[in-house]
């Protein structure tokens, strides 16, 4: 587990986990880099082969670990490198969000976004938006609530 640096004086800096498709959003994040588009350093990206390979368990795990937001990045509808993985991701995330509500977890911390390999600016803007929105929500209380 990463070190807990909870200092009351410091502004809350959300921890964001990114699960990004190798073919689109990961490459979009690369393009933001090669284009030197600056965005807040709050996201940690884990490369997956397809948004459709993201098991909802990963997201629950991240929430219980204390992640303040999770970004799942996939190809635009119709553009999936593996035919229809992004549609599978969309269905899974819709169901998961429903279930999370009944479990008393916060579905708004999950962001499913379509970002293509040519959308470096879109990636940077997305991270910026997630950071801003998550700051409004405050820290994810799950870890504390579950006494983990």
């Amino acid at each position: 587990m990463s070190e807990e640096v909870e200092n009351a004086d410091e502004e809350f800096e959300p921890k964001i986990v990114g699960l990004l498709c190798n073919w689109c959003s990961y490459a979009g994040a690369d393009l933001a880099g090669t284009s030197r588009i600056q965005y807040p350093p709050n996201i940690r990206v884990i490369r997956v082969m397809c948004s459709g390979s993201v098991d909802p368990v990963y997201i629950n795990r991240a929430l219980l670990d204390g992640a303040d937001a999770i970004l799942i990045g996939g190809c635009h509808p119709g553009d999936c490198h593996y035919i229809d993985g992004n549609y599978k991701a969309r269905r899974k995330m819709a169901l998961l969000k429903n279930i999370l509500t009944t479990l008393g977890m916060e579905p708004d911390r999950i962001w499913l976004k379509w970002i293509s390999a040519s959308e470096g600016q879109e990636f940077a803007d997305t991270v910026q938006e997630i950071v801003e929105e998550t700051k409004k929500m405050g820290p994810n209380p799950m870890k504390e609530r579950w006494n983990l």
């Binding site: 587990m1 990463s2 921890k15 082969m49 390979s53 098991d55 368990v57 990963y58 795990r61 204390g66």
Partner: peptide, 15 residues
């Protein structure tokens, strides 16, 4: 080489 165990351990490190 991209097992659930690997991904979950990766998530645990950053979440």
């Amino acid at each position: 080489n991209l097992t659930k165990k690997q991904i979950i351990r990766m998530i645990d490190e950053v979440a």
